[in-house]
Design a protein around this nucleic acid. Structure first.
Lengths: 209, 209, 209, 209
DNA sequence: GCCTAACCGAGACGGTACGTCACGTCTTTTA
DNA sequence: TAAAAGACGTGACGTACCGTCTCGGTTAGGC
């Protein structure tokens, strides 16, 4: 279900002409095209989006109540699918998870773009909450699940706070991918982060384990 | 020196009526007052700022070339001073540094505000660069300096990448302070992060082995 | 036959579902109700008319090509029937004719309303022409007929221009009824106008001199 | 004084940049140009007027609160000056007055135009009242003054209602000039109307006067 | 004690975008 | 095929700001 659903009520079997899915796609595609073409977020007006998508303004407002709500869906449409985890070990799963974050930072339809959309959403608490709930939170939950399993399997110290542990892995990657777009994201970064952080989180294994 | 300096040139000993510093303060104070009063960033127009500060629009444009440039100075004015480091050990210095980040996240004149200004600036690359250079970068450099000294003194493994190490400390705090305003920032968090990260970064053999 | 008739052609015995006359009435009644309720002409949109009448927009457009054409029919529906003339004399007939104009000006379903519809139609030459042909012209023709008979019967000088004479009667009433809605339309006005104008139009020598 | 005067208050000696008279003229000229070029009143949007006059929309709204208020001033600007009266007799004055109405109907910058503006204004009672007060009423008053003088000088029966008498002259001209744009307005019409109406209004002069 | 240049407030100016509304057309389902 | 419902592209509405530009009036030197 999309945020774009603001139909007043669903009384009965859908009366009147149904909304065109093609139009919906055209709008989202239009926004992404503009962003890729180097149009800054501040220059992106509803009016311009409508012109680009060959669509009336009202058609946009019928689906989204404003620029920010639209951007949530743009982000969602641009998000790559969550990676499949190997499941061989906690360490390997974490590497894959962080690697997907790295790739997202590099090549998310066009790296610098989503970045700004991201930033824009932050200045609207309501929208940020929506994005948080529907995108960020599930992803974080995935990391926590990996750690829980790792703790159960003895790959992680049992006295560790999982929330904090998660941030120990995710934080360093985020500093670079989100906050510092000018910083390099070299191949192997995910592995180095996981292994470095893990060094302090692993159980004190019996020396001759 | 402030970004607000855009006097055309300095030919001779300043002719005509000099710019009023009181006016400058009134503008910055006005912006902060508005933000504290719950006015969202999007609602903050130059026109409104001028009205609030009892100032002509041209008087603002004479000092800053636009909203973003003004916000950089607002941020700067609201930044708490960098903390004094104890210097007793790398670990203690890091704790103090992270603790200052935590406090910034909690109580920076009014926590959620600067947050948004921060976010806003990110969508203007030019301004972000300015802020980066004059605020972020020096602070990061401070962290790296601590780590360099720690490496020299044997508190940190010598084979470690300092940039990465820095992110191992800063990242977890940033995840919470910047990206997740809803997450708790309890007392002692700085200490826990430093100690946990340090566990994997300390030299294997005790320095004074 | 109504202006509302825009069926493409009448091939054969009318195929498909026939148009509902009830719908037609509902629309015209709806417009009049709205006007009586103080809704100004400018506020009267097709969309609102459809909503009020509980009718689809297309249903209106199927009958009239636009707002003005619809208003012509509204006017026609609201016009009181032409008065029956006594036929006792030219003077009496003229009094009755002008009296009906006076009443129209006072109480035409709701005085000020039709006024505005009238004014509106004037800014659309095409529609004005239609209204002119089907409503105004026949009424004028009736006045001229009275005058012709009067001239034949010796109640009117034979050298008089009938068109001009007609305007001498109709004009003064119109100035008040149409152009000056704030001006009083007292009982007996028709009689006074006719007698005053007639004073200069009667033959000098008594007919049966 | 113009209707265009909607300055909030006149506190003190006029602060801020004064409104440009050139802009005011450009707008009024623009409207008249458009009307002359055959643009119908319904097609005349504020947006289009602004485009034509090379002016921002706000600049128009700063002076007039809407289309109708603007049209009042357009009408005023297009009104020819009131004619100078010969003063030789009531009859001659009336002829000149009606002749000026005839010419207004024929050649008022472009006959059919002002017509429509006139009609448009009628559907907005408030505006019609303003136009009535500032244009219509003074002109009517002029006619009444002529009649009063005529009555004093013995050119008019003393028992006649002046308001009604005025309508006897003005009405016939108005029927043609305002309500029936298709009707001819031949030279000499004013004279014929005055003389015909006067026939019934003159004092019963002593036969051998 | 002037002169002059820049500052200051106010607010007009040509623009662009806002979010809403109505236009007249179209595409559904139901009758 | 009509009818109600409502989506669609279009374009005007009246408002708010944008950044620039006059205005009248300060407020400092430098003369």
């Amino acid at each position: 279900m999309s945020l774009a659903d603001s139909r007043p009520q669903q009384r009965g079997p859908a009366r009147g002409r149904p909304r065109s899915e093609a139009v919906e796609r055209a709008i989202l595609e239009g926004v992404m095209k503009l962003l890729e073409d180097g149009v800054s977020l501040a220059e992106l007006s509803i009016e311009r989006i409508a012109r680009t998508a060959g669509v009336g303004k009202a058609t946009i407002y019928r689906r989204w109540s404003g620029k920010e709500e639209l951007f949530v869906d743009v982000m969602r449409a641009a998000e790559p699918p969550d990676p499949e985890l190997p499941g061989t070990s906690m360490r390997d799963d974490l590497v894959v998870l962080l690697e997907s974050m790295r790739l997202r930072g590099l090549a998310n339809r066009s790296s610098a773009i989503m970045h700004n959309v991201h930033a824009q959403m932050k200045s609207s608490p309501k929208i940020w909450a929506a994005y948080n709930t529907s995108v960020i939170r599930p992803r974080r939950e995935r990391g926590l699940e990996i750690l829980r399993r790792g703790q159960r399997d003895g790959e992680l110290r049992s006295d560790i706070d999982l929330e904090l542990a998660n941030d120990m892995f995710v934080g360093p990657m985020l500093v670079r991918a989100v906050l510092r777009p000018d910083m390099e994201l070299p191949e192997g970064l995910a592995e180095r982060i996981v292994d470095t952080a893990l060094a302090g989180l692993r159980p004190v294994s019996p020396p001759g384990g």
